[in-house]
Amino acid sequence: MRITLHLSGGLKAVLSHLPEEMSLQLERPASLREILMRAGINPLLVMVVTVDGQRGNKDQVIDHDAEITLIGPMAGG
């Protein structure tokens, strides 16, 4: 499975050492938390995720090719 991660908004500022887009190859289904850790991203820094354009959550298991957008910390208003 090919997973593409996009960093969005405030996450780019906080993880400035990482590229804005990353690809990972997965051999077996994995939760988003595991995927993030494999990519070197602390899941605590991810506030919101979308999977193929739909709002998801960090405990969701990914079992197919997916475009995942990670939205970082943002203020509430």
């Binding site: 996009h6 969005s8 908004g9 506030m47 919101v48 995720v49 979308t50 354009g53 739909q54 709002r55 957008t69 939205i71 910390p73 943002m74 203020a75 509430g76 208003g77």
Partner: peptide, 14 residues
């Protein structure tokens, strides 16, 4: 890319 993740719940989403 963040549009679909942020707008539906607005600020309450955090």
């Amino acid at each position: 890319p963040g549009f679909a993740g942020w707008t539906p719940e607005g600020t309450a989403g955090i």
